[in-house]
Amino acid sequence: MKSARKPLDIVLPVTPGLTRAAHARLEAFAEATRLPRKVMFAADTALEELLQNVVDYSGAHEVRLLLSVECGELRLELADDGRPFNPLEVENPDLGLPFELRPEGGLGVFLARKMMDRVGYEHRDGRNRLSLAKTLA
């Protein structure tokens, strides 16, 4: 159905409830577009982790969220007006470290990157812009 593939383009305020607001929008979008469960789970995890970082560290006031299904993949774009932060520069945690040495944090960005097939970043016009994609197949 053509209308079910209509992109979602919204701006959300950065508040402690941001991740839940975004999750609700993603869930509605996933239902309308009949996203496979696995794709929804991946996008849900990535959104949760990346947006929680925005809430906790960015100092941003708002985030623009764009969701679309194109060329056989789910595409997500996030743009916030916070401090410049490139999550692709965050080093992956060393999963081989023994128990005593494993850090308790640093897993969020790693999870987001592992869950999605592609993650890109640029800082343009005063905004952090993340683009993510997950194939539907």
């Binding site: 789970f41 849900d44 995890t45 949760e48 982790e49 929680q52 494993r102 308790e104 944090g105 897993l107 969020g108 790693f110 999870l111």
Partner: peptide
Amino acid sequence: NFLCSAAIRVLLQ
């Protein structure tokens, strides 16, 4: 049905 990294941090800690 969902577990975020902040929850993992709480569990490990």
